[in-house]
Every structure is written in structure tokens, then in C-alpha cells.
Design a protein around this nucleic acid. Sequence first.
DNA 1: CGTATATTTAACCATTACGTTAATTAGCTA
DNA 2: TAGCTAATTAACGTAATGGTTAAATATACG
Lengths: 124, 124
Amino acid sequence: MSTTSAATLDSIFSALADPTRRAIVARLATGEATVLELAAPFDISLPAISRHLKVLEHAGLISRGRDAQRRPCQLRAEALDEITRWTLHTREAWSDRFERLDDYLKTLQSKPRKVKNRNDRKKK
Amino acid sequence: MSTTSAATLDSIFSALADPTRRAIVARLATGEATVLELAAPFDISLPAISRHLKVLEHAGLISRGRDAQRRPCQLRAEALDEITRWTLHTREAWSDRFERLDDYLKTLQSKPRKVKNRNDRKKK
DNA sequence: CGTATATTTAACCATTACGTTAATTAGCTA
DNA sequence: TAGCTAATTAACGTAATGGTTAAATATACG
């Protein structure tokens, strides 16, 4: 465990799928905080917060230190970066597909699909 | 409803938390595809794929057209942009916190780690 | 018409996720 | 030591998720 960041995209995405956990992450983006501090804004029990933190930690989104009986949490931005990387990469592929738009349009013409209204003027 | 993306971050993140759905999204990033085409690489049943697609559609990540009995799916990149926006924004806040590093270091000095004799009798 | 193809819906089952309250551990402080 | 404070673990209920098979729907084709 220790400084593990073998966290999967699965665990990172699903950690961030919960609004409470996203709020915690957003809060931690401004600096580290203890469990009680993180719990304060929410209307749920401390054990629930504790489990949210465990999920975040498992996803590599936070790490925890120790200060007496407190366990201050810290954001690990690399996990965020992983999300960004995947998303931007996918987005880029999506944009790139327009490179083949010409071919695509030609395909449309040479292979007439079952279009009933064939009077549509394909603009090229 | 229609093609509006009132989809929440919750639904987008949790849609992408599943590896099958991420693979589908990645596939769709290269261009539209039918349900059968999307299902081909996977070892799960068609109904399962169908439900994955519904989740993605609900999250605003895909839209579906109609071509005879086929329902071609298309990626809606705006949903991807939304998570990029959230993630980068959060990441930025994390980086920005170093702006206050000087203050923070001063705080550390004036208030050494083990603060035993704090005179704050403040109660909440 | 009847059949094939593409996809969805229904009904069901196992597992996971998220919340609760009560009890427990850990570390200070008097 | 006892008694705080901080946080976690235990035990439990309920709802959501992800998979299955069987049946239903929609459209095209001969």
C-alpha cells in the first residue's frame, strides 16, 4: 500500500461518481484537512465519511498522514491526471475522426444505404 | 430531454466507471457504430450491452440514431468535456494552493507541529 | 404473408454500494 | 489512571448495479 498508485481508471471514475466524494476532493484541492473537517459540511454520519475516504484512498485520489489522533487527508493530483489523460485522449480520437470525413462521404455515395428519401442533396 | 445534456457529473462519472462502457466510448470515438458492432468485442450478452448503452445515453455520452432496424450510436463529446472541465478545474485549485505556500510556511514556524499549549478555549 | 435480423424489455439473481447506530481503537490531557 | 477527542470497525438494511435467459418488438426481405 504505502504510496501505491496502482489505482485503476475503474476505481478513480467510480470514486468520483459520488457527489460527496467529489465535494471532498474539491475541498482537498484547496489544502489538506482532517476527517472531522471534511465531514463538517455534510449531513451524514462520520463512519460514512470514513468509508468515502477509504474509497478515495483506494482510488489513489488521496493519501493520509498522521497528526496525533488526527488523520489529515491530502489530494493526490496524479489520479486526477489519469482521468484527464483518458478523457482527452478519447476526445482527441473523436475529433480526429473528421479527418476521414471525405472518405466517409464517398462511402455514403458509393454504398447507397436504405434511404427512402434519396432526394437529399449531399453537400460535399 | 431531446438532445440536451442535462446529464449530471454523477451520471457521467459513474457511466465511465465501468470498463465495458469505457471501451464502448473509446470505440465510438472513432466513429458511430451499431449495437451489434459495439457488442462484438465483448463476451457478454446483448441485453447487457443494451443496458450499458442506456446508461451511456442517460449520461449524455452517446446519442442514437435510426437506420432501419439498427440503432447506430454516436459519441457526444460534450459529456466528456464536462468531466474534463471538472477535473482540470479541481486540479488547478490544487496547483494554486502553492500560491499560499509562503504563508503556510510562516504558519508552520509560528505554530510548531505539536501544538500543546494553545490557549484557545473556544468551543464550537 | 412468414422469416430473418437488430434491439429492447421482463423477470430474476448475486454482488456491491451507501447509509445507519453501536462499539472499538488510538492518542492526547488532566 | 480516567476522560476527552478523532477516527475506524462491526453489524445490519436497503437500493442500485451488472449479469443472465426468455420473450417481445421493430424493420427488412423473399
